[in-house]
Simulated assay, not measured.
Amino acid sequence: MSDLFEASGLSTAGPRPLADRMRPTRLADVVGQDHLLGADGTLTRMLKTRTLGSLIFWGPPGTGKTTIARLLATETDLAFEQISAIFSGVADLKKMFEAARARRMSGRATLLFVDEIHRFNRAQQDSFLPVMEDGTITLVGATTENPSFELNAALLSRSHVMTFHSLSREAIDSLLSRAEETEERPLPLDAEARQVLVRMADGDGRSALTL
């Protein structure tokens, strides 16, 4: 049953931030993480050999962690679920695990993306272990903090840590060019001002598009 927002069209017709509208739909369109997604990148090799397991994405904001997690689910035909450790508790995790178990019984596995995973306490982090071990979920956790200090050793031992880099100036400039194509108009900046904008973004793609 649709809700009032869906019935009125407001759920899809509202304005969306530029960064959301420009979210890549293919891994090949992600910029700035060639060590992971390039021809010989770590994630590229995992996908080719079908050895994708649970992952921890460690890096600064605006570098593509959420986007890549979504696209990995698409590439591997996994159901994508997302929660934030800031807003979720034990009850939310249990519901998510139960839904993943039910989905698995119907023949489809789940990629569970956990943003700010370092915000979960040790007991909450431990709750992931059984569902990771029995294949109920493929966990992808994102953190801006060093996982060696913020995550349980048991969780780390069952995951591959992927380090994300701040976007280079070339990558930011490429995003701005894509934004101009999306908006169908050039930025009202001369070359010097454009470079100032790139520097202000400080390696954060989302920040660049917001600016």
Rank of each mutant, 00 (worst) to 15 (best):
D3Q: 03
E6H: 03
A7R: 15
G9V: 01
L10Y: 09
S11G: 04
S11I: 03
A13L: 11
G14D: 04
P15A: 09
P17C: 05
A19S: 14
D20L: 05
R21L: 05
M22R: 04
T25R: 12
T25H: 03
L27T: 13
V31F: 10
G32R: 05
Q33L: 05
D34M: 14
D34I: 14
D34E: 15
G38P: 12
D40R: 13
D40V: 09
G41H: 12
L43F: 00
L43A: 09
T44K: 12
T44H: 09
T49G: 07
T51S: 01
G53T: 10
L55H: 05
I56L: 08
T66K: 00
T67K: 07
A69H: 03
A69Y: 01
L71C: 06
L72P: 06
A73G: 02
A73Y: 01
L78S: 11
A79T: 15
S84L: 13
I86N: 07
S88Y: 02
D92Q: 15
K94P: 03
E98L: 05
A100M: 04
R101T: 06
R104K: 14
R104N: 11
R104W: 02
M105G: 15
A109Y: 14
T110D: 08
F113M: 14
V114M: 01
V114D: 04
E116K: 10
H118N: 11
F120W: 10
N121V: 07
S127V: 11
L129T: 09
P130I: 05
D134I: 05
G135F: 06
G135L: 06
T136L: 06
I137E: 09
V140T: 07
G141T: 00
G141C: 01
G141H: 11
A142V: 06
A142G: 11
T143A: 03
T143L: 04
T143G: 02
E145V: 00
E145T: 06
P147G: 03
F149G: 03
E150A: 02
L151T: 09
L151P: 10
L151M: 10
L156V: 02
S157C: 06
S157M: 09
R158A: 08
H165A: 13
S168E: 11
R169I: 12
R178K: 03
R178S: 10
E184C: 04
L187H: 04
L189A: 08
M200N: 14
D202V: 13
G203M: 04
R206H: 00
R206P: 00
L209Q: 12
T210C: 10
L211M: 10
